[in-house]
């Protein structure tokens, strides 16, 4: 088994357990303000210290993990849905359908994604649901091209021709015959995209366009901590590392999967 995948999986599974059981793991209320315990350094009571309002940073980060992970997964699910359907149609039918969809992809590529997301969020109003949807709606272009390329080669395979001769419908050929054989690079790309989506969410929250205070997310803990960076390092170091390790883990899983699913290696095993 691939070492990178194992490392990544351990970290991600740990994060997921923390996110799922947040109320049991976080001993303090993440929103409770305590003016007598402001900017306290890490201690037994407050593992990651407290912030400028005396809130427990550990509890806030535990709840913040829910945001990061759910944004990552849901945004990527949305972009998978769009990318696979458009890429599949494009590669399978070719011709005018392909032309229109590929122009659309090129248009998406023209926008600097992050600024596009910022602009849309500014119009729609910042909320975590909007962030998920907008990240999903703006990050499908690469996936679309990937799926299209796979469909282009697979539609010329004899098992697809055979299905056509037997009268199998286009829909069934696309989803039952071609898609399962096209998924390997999609898994890789999707895993890497989860890391990217988490990073975008953190950046948006950092800029005040994501999760709104007082609700915690890794990005906005970082924002409120940056004013106290000189004497309260725990407010920036812990959320910073949390983001780093989560994104790194997804990237390692993606890279590991790429290695495992590489078509050349696959040929050898067959």
């Amino acid at each position: 088994m691939n070492k990178r995948i194992i490392f990544g999986l351990v970290v991600i599974l740990g994060m997921m357990i923390i996110a799922l059981f947040a109320p049991f793991i976080a001993q303090q209320d993440p929103l409770e303000i305590n003016h007598d315990a402001r900017l306290e350094p890490p201690s037994i009571n407050h593992l990651f210290g407290t912030d400028n309002l005396g809130r427990d940073t550990f509890s806030r980060m535990v709840y913040g993990s829910r945001i990061s992970l759910s944004v990552g997964f849901i945004a990527v699910l949305i972009s998978l849905g769009i990318g696979i359907s458009l890429g599949g149609l494009s590669g399978y039918y070719g011709g005018k359908v392909d032309g229109v969809i590929m122009r659309l992809v090129e248009i998406m590529y023209c926008f600097p994604t992050f600024f596009l997301i910022m602009m849309i969020i500014t119009f729609l109003g910042p909320s975590i649901v909007n962030v998920m949807i907008v990240i999903g709606l703006t990050s499908w272009a690469g996936l679309c091209r990937l799926v299209r390329a796979e469909f282009l080669t697979l539609r010329e395979r004899d098992f697809v021709h055979s299905a056509k001769v037997q009268g199998v419908s286009d829909m069934r050929i696309m989803f039952r015959h071609i898609l399962p054989n096209a998924m390997a690079p999609v898994y890789v790309s999707a895993t890497l995209s989860i890391g990217g989506a988490i990073l975008i969410e953190s950046a948006l929250s950092f800029l005040g366009l994501g999760v709104q205070i007082p609700n915690p997310s890794w990005g906005n803990i970082l924002t409120s901590g940056k004013n106290y960076m000189d004497y309260a390092w725990w407010l920036t170091v812990f959320p910073g590392f949390a983001i780093l390790f989560t994104v790194l883990s997804f990237n390692l899983i993606g890279e590991g999967l790429r290695e495992v699913l590489d078509p050349k290696l696959r040929e050898k095993r067959r």
Partner: peptide
């Protein structure tokens, strides 16, 4: 009805079915 048998039996059967 018509059907077809191809040259390459590695490519003519869907590996995932």
């Amino acid at each position: 009805a018509v059907d077809i048998v191809f040259q390459d039996p590695f490519g003519s059967l869907n590996p995932r079915m």
